[in-house]
Amino acid sequence: MQIQLSAVVPVPLRERILQRESDIWNRDVTFQPGQFVKIKAPSGTGKTTLVHYLYHIRYDYTGTVSVNGKPWQSYNRDQLSAIRQGQVSVVFQDLRLFDQLTALENIELKRVMQPQPFYPREKALEFAERLGVTHVLQQSGATLSYGERQRIAIIRALMQPFEWLMMDEPFSHLDEANADKAARLIADECHARKAGFILTDLDHDQRFDYTVSYLL
């Protein structure tokens, strides 16, 4: 699954963006299947906005974002949900867990969303173990610390099949050790699926073997 950006400029950031150089905005960029893509972005350059455009939950831009040669806009609601269940997964910066569910239920929600789950339930427990959040699985999403929520959100994103994983500052609230564990898990899961990811962050890092790096 190929993702192409073609002269994409966010309407609200238009003035600011056109004044400075960017590897992404207002350019033609193609993300090839299986690439590990890092997008380094200083604050206020539209990092989260870009992830939302790539995941197609925000539409206030000029230019086109194409998936498999077709602009996002040409996919209908059902096709979109099929893509989100089977081809593109996401870790939002604001994580977006359901407070009324426990941590485990938040993970399960994504796992059983497909009639034939990609992974058995044990896999969720295994990932929780790897990231050190087993003890919070039965707690309500509302009571978790930000770091715990971040790890739950990562595990949730890994419960489904995907070709692309979008991540918006996925390690921002994790210490080095936990961030490395999470990165290893993500890399393992991407390799297992032969999938690529697009990760945005503020700084440089060496956690992944990036195929390509952009400056937003």
């Binding site: 609601r77 059902d78 949900s81 893509i83 989100r84 269940q85 977006r96 929600l109 994504k110 969303m113």
Partner: peptide, 15 residues
């Protein structure tokens, strides 16, 4: 809000 998030996460309108 919950419905929007469910759709964002990939739940289909049909579901």
């Amino acid at each position: 809000n919950e419905i929007r998030l469910l759709i964002t996460l990939g739940a289909s309108p049909g579901q």
